[in-house]
Design a protein around this nucleic acid. Structure first.
Lengths: 153, 153
DNA sequence: TCGCAATCGTTCGTCACACTAACGTTAGTC
DNA sequence: GACTAACGTTAGTGTGACGAACGATTGCGA
């Protein structure tokens, strides 16, 4: 009814390889998130930008890129999409005409709240099999890893 | 000396989003793994196939695909690469001429041991900031997640 | 004050990866 | 002996991370 594949098991070496587990888990998680966001015509970059603007106020694209880890080149399209949807406004910075100032609109803030809820649900869904304590432990460990490698964060 | 970027911090909402942490951590990990394997002219699929053959013996490509999660279509190229390097042999299965039988060679087993060591080092490197107990906890949590979502594994 | 280097936004292109579709070949089934 | 299903293979799609180059602008040092 659900799956016709025999569901063969992987080799022990693979099952115990932490880098592989991490990769597979992230794939699943990403897929879920992308699907769910796609259903409301959003992408995770949208959320990243909206949340950043909400927390730090209007910013240049360079700053947004640094904070969200979105490449400057890719950020262009993201801002385009957000302006098309009326969630942000892009204007030339009068004090430095190389820059743009990206501003969160009222609709943008509303969308942010909507995505907040959606992503919270998704997080619960992805971490469903973990207890509350385990979830905290999990995010703590991930944070430690990121802080260590990536000097950012 | 190392980084010229100001290293801006991300928004709190993003810092606490488990799906995002997972994604970022996996990206870092994958990148390290791919780089390291690339330096010895390998890919992670190579390891997956070699390990599977070592553990379960000669197999058809369909079975390898099921066990390694590599798509049948992509597996073709992987087996090509491995035969080019002399690590596996591909022959028609006499008992079912639709299938191929993929066999691990002596060189293949040697390569597997080499990759074993390399990946163990990489695992240590990636999980460096975690204590031994935390590492076990981490892989355990990942396994729980995978087992829950993905009915395979 | 002039020239050089750096920064910003933008466009274009690349590379790898997950994933689908279609197809010829071969095996089992009724 | 026709139909269906599995196998390996080819080709193609979509996306995401990433790099190169460029015009416009700014700041800095000679």
């Amino acid at each position: 009814m659900t799956e016709s594949t025999p569901e063969l098991v992987a080799a022990a070496r693979l099952r115990n390889l932490p880098t592989r587990l991490l990769s597979l888990a992230a794939m699943h998680s990403d897929r879920r998130v992308n699907e769910a966001l796609g259903r409301v015509d959003a992408r995770k970059w949208h959320y990243a930008v909206l949340a950043t603007l909400d927390e730090f106020g209007a910013a240049s694209q360079a700053e947004l890129s640094d904070r969200t880890r979105i490449y400057r080149s890719d950020l262009v399209a993201v801002i385009n999409e957000l302006t098309d949807r009326g969630f942000v406004e892009r204007a030339a910075d009068p004090s430095d005409r190389r820059r743009n100032v990206v501003t969160l609109t009222r609709q943008g803030r509303r969308q942010l709240l909507k995505l907040d809820k959606l992503l919270a649900e998704l997080g619960d869904e992805v971490l469903a099999p973990l207890t509350e304590a385990e979830r905290e432990q999990f995010t703590r460990l991930l944070t430690v890893l990121l802080r260590y490698h990536d000097q950012g964060m």
